[in-house]
Design a protein around this nucleic acid. Sequence first.
DNA 1: AGCACGCCGACT
DNA 2: GTCGGCGTGCTC
Length: 822
Amino acid sequence: MPEVEEYAEVIVDLPSGHLDQSLTYRIPPSLKGEVKVGSMVLVPLLNRRSIGYVLEISPSSSVPEVKEIISVLPPNPILRKHQISLCRWMAEYYLSSFSRSLRLALPPGRARKISEMIELTTIDMDSIKADVRLKEKHRQILTHLSQMGRLTRSDLKKCFPDKSTDRYLRRLEELGLIKRTFTVQEPRAELLMEEAVYLQDYRLEDRARLKGSRKQEEILSFLETHGDGIAIRELLALTGSSRSSLKRLVEKGFGHISQVRVRRDIMSLHGVDEEWQGGKVALTIEQARAVEEISASLEKGDGQVFLLKGITGSGKTEVYLRCAQKALDQGRNVLILVPEISLTPQMIKFFSQRLGIELGVFHSQLSPCERYDQWVDILNGKIKIVVGTRSAIFSPLNNLGLIVVDEEHDPSYKESVMPRYHAREAAVRLAKILSATLVLGSATPALESMYKARKGEYRLLSLSTRVPGRKLPQVSLIDLKQEKKERGGSDLLSSALLTEMSDCLGRGEQGILFLNRRGFANFLICSRCGHVPKCRNCDISLTFHKKDRLLVCHHCYWKEGAPDLCPACRNISLILMGGGTQRVEETLRKIFPHHRVIRMDADTTRPKLAHFRLLEEFRQERGAILLGTQMITKGLHFPNVTLVGVVSADTALNLPDFRAAERTFQLLTQVSGRSGRGEKEGKVIVQSYNPTNYAVQLAVAQDYDSFYEEEVGKRDDLGYPPFSQIINLIFLSKDRQVAEEGSTTLKKMLGGSRLAEKGLEILGPAPCPLPRVKNFYRWHIIIKMKGDGQEKNFIREVLSSFYRRKKEELRLVVDVDPVWIM
DNA sequence: AGCACGCCGACT
DNA sequence: GTCGGCGTGCTC
Ligand SMILES: [Zn+2]
Ligand SMILES: [Zn+2]
């Protein structure tokens, strides 16, 4: 039988990821049938080895000299075709590399690395000493190797840091004095097994004696209420205790620890969540129409994108559930994306009960072990519906009928490391790849989404009637200009807010206060008329720099002296705003010393599962205050919360970001549209120097359409999205100069004066609004593209040549369609 | 990421 | 000459 040749197109996975073309390899006869599209393979590359992913298989090759694939690595195949298509698009669209995006789609813990070990070929050191071909440095390296045995290249370089070490190693290998071996590293053991705690029988009197040890008592009652079999890692995170407390508890005979392959995961914990209760209900007319339209698309399999705009409490979830059921009935699978903060155990249970089916859950806080088991269950068809956060877009679930992106405007859908993809846009792409119907749901759709819906690209469905029996809270706007005149309250909290808070806490109810994130830019605001100095080019609030009393635009680097008088009303009334979050917390603790103040922000939620823990603490504490950034909106559903305050609408409105108004509108709409599910009436207080601002007013009036018109007009005037596409290039270095130089160099490479011809406009270079983070100086340039997207190819080429010649200590982050400009 | 190749300046 | 540093280009 004649041998039919087969070739594979392989993307090589180099750590730096800049070899972005596929390479052709021959499939040896022994691996025929084994190498498939999506296989992870070991391939030769120059005189090394590398991991690669097979994109395609073809019977012929135009490459003159091809090498052979060495082996196939399990699980095989590791990627499905639709994942490869999604990653190809992602790498291109977000100006990243193919291998980098593919890595995101690999099953958890299954990414492999190659390790290179260097060792002597002889132990005869005398002949080495006599070898005249060797230089002093050769001998030093050989001696070091003879003492240390096998070493990796990087270990060796710790002792021989000069740049010439590689050269010497090359020569030593040529002379046959050293040899290199390449091995594929096995997945780490802890990814496959996990330690879990199980309770043992204990006597009540022993239990009583634990009272003295607070932490042990806490761990034990956690296990009693939530059930045992939970991973130690998560148990400690959820109870906020240390390993030693657990160890003592186990020593006293209350439980034992064992290694488990599969364990109960965090998503199966018990608990209550008001948001996810109730059974199947009758649909409103609007809901029924939405379900009908989406179902029709499911039946046709036309890959229609729907924008489901539904005010809070209008029952979007019910629409998702009915449509999911429909897709499942058709024998097709379902993917539901939700924001980070909404994915709770109760939500999962609710969905799974309603659909009567086991759900796959994708969550960054699950252990790799757990996630791998789900991956297997998806492949063997046991899991037909996946609910997850941003990264669930990479789920191997195929045969998708329906994709849902809930709260599609939520910023947590945007990835923060490269490729900085937006899960909503990725979902649009995935729906196209798989001809799945896509539903984007939100009460306050992103401007970009609504723009596409108005253009007819998406089909708009509206739910405008509230499910009966829900009351809107009473919203008051506090004008800080007045407040200032009357000198009431503390410097950041008005007397109205403090009085309401005191009443609320006094009744044993709870309050929530929204603050802006810390460490952000300061700006000037007029305490008499509310005026804020803005950049005349960008319409961005200017940032105040104390050192040289300058106002600076962090988009285009426009600078001007800080005025003494308010430019609008000519009074000496400009005050500094933006800081003070720390002070609000201190003030609250001082005024309400007997009430718990819980702060939830990026810092306090850094430990694993801290979200759950802090929210749970808040829920259970009568008369507590929850203080934090946008991430605390989850707390709005708690029935005992009767007061919600927004400390400074101005700080939100004046973040140096063209989306500041949209963000503020979304937050305020959500806050003032929250419908009390309890019997108690809710109150909302919004503090501002500009209570007449359109974003504030229209949010309170729950008027999305007017806000859209107003905001879209502004975006059009200034050429911001959706009327242009923006790419933010961020240059990071520990050396300020390096970061700044990088940004100027790249701007020059992009064409300097001939930018307009290419349809590009560049703002900056400028220091980022957060100019220094964790010791890294940050500069950026903003590229605005007005054309059809063709300019991107040009930018890609410039970037790749920039990457090749840039200094090692300079890091470049490419953010296409940035969600925050920070 | 390695590795080769070529260029250049510093130092025997 | 020789040694290292550095920019550039390539990897099937
Ligand atoms: Zn003024
Ligand atoms: Zn500007």
